[in-house]
Write a protein that binds this DNA or RNA. Structure first.
Length: 418
RNA sequence: GGAAGGUUGGCAGAGUGGUCGAAUGCGCCGCACUUGAAAUGCGGUAUGCUGAAAGGCAUCGGAGGUUCGAAUCCUCCACCUUCCGCCA
């Protein structure tokens, strides 16, 4: 959630920010109008309530008969005002949930992913003396991926990860945890179900995201789309000592996404599925240092990719393509030779105080005051997509897959063959 | 799934209709005393909204209700603890 005082004082800036994120800036005017009405109503309510409180005190001191009729009138009037106030409050909150985080001033402006800014390309693209195949052809032939059977069992956009591919999954998880816990990240396996109220606070049930979530009506819980969603709330209502920041976690969980609105997009294979596993980094940082922390998380992502010896590029996401909660976002895109293109495998976001406000996560400043922390999240390995990267980059002429050096010890072999 | 008990400020814990935003203790902060510390004494110590400020309003797990007035009474819900059942 965005800072309401900031909207009141910087409405033009917020409108521009919304426009740059391709949201309707008129929402701000509507919001400000309602906000003002709500404040007027609140003040009227408070005044009348004050009158009632005084009256009650007088009655407790005696002479209740004389004052009773006045008290009863106040009671009736108050309940009317209260319901008007409630309506205003609801509409106001509804509008608030339609305002995203505002990008930093120096985020590249742009409408869609075509205007993202490539910062660097790292690693040498493999050269093949044959036409490289796509991961699904190789994976199916070697018995590593089965989407046909998965679709019969579970529907479209599911996959079985089998044999050495399943072993590779655990190897990747282990590699990520080994690498990151050495840097002081706290290892975690979070819940994958989350209460609506908490989810809202994380900004992940906003108007544009709700359709993306799985929801169990009977239990009133959602399935998380990422371990980010339950790692942020681990410090709900906490106050950090300043010296304990940044606090970093590396979490593993399955992620669930309805993929609503992506019909026809990447329908084949396991690139875009309803369920996948992911290692995620999460950080709670001092607001003055969150940009620095953001770069650190990005460097961790790059380190992990470099350990796999797979070529990738780093992209700064333009305003129009950014996430709802983000003030700045980098993506790591992995080279997929079978497709002849870079595809998003990692994302790295600074949500500033957009999530910490909803979660009420603060730190104590040197002069004893409390202020909101900044919250950041970054993909470690999105397993399915990394597998694609490994398979396509390390394929051999014979249709086998060389196991990246660093994973060989985990998997127990140098090459995956049929 | 069944039964019982519980949820109050950083913590412990009092409080069963009005003077309770809340006793007391611990903790924490400040001051005094002290070479320093401990001990002791004095004072302070929840959050949010609103307001230029003074102040006002709200909050005792959550939502409703009764009442002129609710931490306190009623209803529903959530969570915790213990026991039974079930289960990896």
């Amino acid at each position: 959630m965005i800072d309401i005082t900031f909207i009141r004082e910087n409405s033009e800036k917020v409108k521009k920010g919304m426009e740059s994120k391709r949201q309707d800036p008129k929402i701000i005017d509507k919001f400000l109008r309602l906000d003002e009405e709500w404040r007027a109503k609140t003040s009227a309510y408070d005044q009348m309530k004050a009158e009632q409180n005084t009256l009650s005190k007088e009655m407790s001191a005696g002479q209740s008969e004389n004052l009773l009729s006045k008290a009863q009138f106040l009671k009736k009037r108050l309940s009317e005002i209260e319901s008007e106030q409630d309506d205003l409050k609801k509409s106001r909150e509804d509008l608030l949930s339609r305002i995203p985080n505002i990008p930093f001033d120096d985020v590249p402006a742009g409408r869609n992913e075509e205007e993202n800014k490539v910062l660097r390309e790292v690693g040498k693209k493999p050269e093949f003396d044959f036409t490289p195949k796509d991961y699904l052809t190789i994976g199916e032939k070697l018995g590593l991926i089965d989407v046909k059977r998965a679709s019969e069992v579970s529907g479209s956009r599911f996959g079985y990860i089998l044999r050495d591919a399943a072993l590779l999954e655990f190897a990747l998880i282990q590699l990520a945890f080994d690498t990151l816990t050495k840097k002081g990240f706290i290892p975690a396996v979070p819940p994958v179900m989350i209460k609506p109220k908490v989810y809202e606070g994380m900004g992940r049930l906003a108007a544009d995201q709700k359709e993306e979530r799985y929801y169990f009506e009977k239990d009133d819980v959602y399935l998380v789309g990422s371990s980010e969603h339950t790692m942020g709330p681990i410090h709900m209502n906490d106050v950090f000592e300043e010296e304990n920041l940044p606090r970093r976690y590396v979490a593993f969980s399955t992620c669930f996404r309805r993929e609503a609105g992506s019909y026809g997009k990447d329908t084949k294979g396991i690139l875009r599925v309803h369920q996948f596993d992911k290692v995620e980094m999460f950080s709670f940082a001092h607001p003055d240092k969150s940009e620095e922390e953001h770069k650190f998380l990005l460097s961790c992502q790059e380190e992990l990719m470099q350990k796999l010896e797979i070529p990738y590029r780093v992209v700064e996401i333009c305003t129009g393509d950014m996430g709802w909660t983000d003030a700045r976002q980098f993506d790591v895109e992995t080279w997929f030779p079978g497709q002849g293109s870079y595809r998003e495998t990692n994302s790295c976001s600074n949500t500033t105080d957009f999530q910490s406000r909803g979660m009420n996560i603060k730190y104590k400043t040197k002069d004893g005051k409390k202020a909101l922390v900044h919250m950041l999240n970054a993909t470690g390995f999105a397993i399915g997509r990394v597998l694609i990267g490994i398979i396509e980059n390390n394929q051999t002429k014979e249709g086998n897959i060389r196991v990246p050096k660093i994973l060989q010890a985990y998997v127990g072999k140098e090459e995956i063959t049929g």
